[in-house]
């Protein structure tokens, strides 16, 4: 059972990855929970990570502290979405 609002957060994260990394709509739409991100997407370098995190903050109205950013939260699409949902939905 997914939390209320989870699908909106997932869509927002998908939209951010598409817009920041310049992915096609098809490629972004194909992201699944276990789709690997950091280390697997050549577009996602450290500068792009900063853009992704800041844009997620803007779209979801949340604040991400730099010490919360680690490899684990960026490991997969599902991990990043869960991190954002925990922040946005509590």
């Amino acid at each position: 059972m997914q939390r209320e609002g989870f699908a909106e957060v997932e869509n927002a994260v998908r939209g951010v990855l598409r817009d920041v990394l310049g992915l096609s709509a098809e490629r972004a739409a194909a992201f699944r929970e276990d789709t690997p991100l950091f280390g697997a997407l050549p577009e996602l370098d450290s500068l792009a990570v900063a853009g992704v995190l800041t844009e997620i903050e803007d779209r979801l109205g949340i604040l991400i502290e730099d010490d919360e950013v680690d490899g684990e939260m960026l490991e997969s699409f599902g991990a990043l979405t869960r991190f954002a949902a925990d922040k946005a939905l509590g």
């Binding site: 990394l21 853009g51 800041t54």
Partner: peptide, 8 residues
């Protein structure tokens, strides 16, 4: 979409 965030 925000072009200023684009990696390239």
């Amino acid at each position: 979409a925000p072009l200023w965030r684009r990696a390239e």
